[in-house]
């Protein structure tokens, strides 16, 4: 299922932003802090209603779908997933089945299998009986991704899914979401991770898209210097050949004449 943003505008934060994520591709949104990435994403997972433009899922305007209908095809891992109540991991993941059940349905065997499988896929099966409040940041993030997978969506929206994860789990999570075959729209901070796992990237700056395309074409030292204000060098990965960025350190304050 493809995702289309058509002239999405949110106040002055995001202006007339259009992009399209083809079905089954991994699309990255990158850009400096405050460039409107998360705001754009919030329009897709319906936390915000854009003041202009439209978001379409498989051609259907999101605004005309019920919350429940969109929850059946679109799952999200957000930045501010508040978990104040001490649910167990199993309970948190089981919530994913909510849009697929009616009020009178009990949790079926299939629901349970789907949830257990999702937990295994993020390498968190052993956490099932733990309370979420006792988890480390990385464990929590993996549990939230498991919940998104257990929702059996066709579109996955992720806001910095690698936050709080160590380098091993960063790659694990991204290769996992890339291998699901789902349409993935993700905000990423790490350009090298974006280069390694995204089919397409869109660079945001001041609420507008400044560059789009495959990462190998988009991530140039010029663009990185212009958008992020750091000097970068492009180096092919010694094994995969994927272009990776190396950054120059800034001079120390006292070294500036």
């Amino acid at each position: 299922m493809d995702v289309e943003l058509d002239g999405v505008t949110v106040g002055t934060i995001v202006s007339d932003l259009s992009l399209r994520a083809e079905a089954g591709t991994v699309v990255g949104l990158v850009g400096p802090n405050g460039s409107g990435k998360t705001t754009t994403l919030r329009c897709v997972y319906r936390a915000l209603r854009p003041s202009g433009g439209a978001v379409r899922l498989g051609g259907e305007p999101l605004a005309s779908m019920s919350t429940r209908d969109s929850a059946r095809v679109l799952a999200a891992v957000t930045q501010d997933s508040e978990l104040d109540f001490d649910f167990t991991v199993r309970e948190v993941v089981a919530m994913a089945r909510l849009p697929h059940q009616s009020a009178f349905d009990r949790e079926s065997l299939r629901d349970k299998e789907i949830c257990a499988e999702a937990l295994r896929r993020v390498d968190a099966g052993h956490l099932a009986e733990r309370g979420v409040l006792s988890l480390s940041g990385g464990e929590r993030q993996r549990v939230l991704i498991a919940r998104a997978l257990a929702q059996r969506p066709r579109v996955l929206v992720l806001d910095e899914p690698t936050n709080h994860l160590d380098i091993g789990h960063q790659h694990e999570v991204l290769s996992l979401v890339a291998s699901t075959g789902l349409t993935v729209l993700t905000v990423l901070h790490d350009l090298n991770l974006a280069a390694a796992y995204c089919d397409q990237v869109h660079v945001l700056s001041d609420g507008r898209i400044t560059a789009s395309g495959p990462p190998s074409e988009v991530f140039t030292p010029e663009l990185v210097g212009e958008v992020f204000g750091v000097r970068a060098h492009l180096v092919p990965h010694p094994v995969s050949g994927v272009p990776q960025l190396l950054y120059d350190r800034r001079p120390r304050q006292e070294e500036i004449p």
Binding site: D69, A71, A75, A76, T78, S81, P99
Partner: peptide, 8 residues
């Protein structure tokens, strides 16, 4: 936000 993504 999470409730909304879960269809509530």
């Amino acid at each position: 936000e999470t409730a909304r993504t879960l269809g509530v």
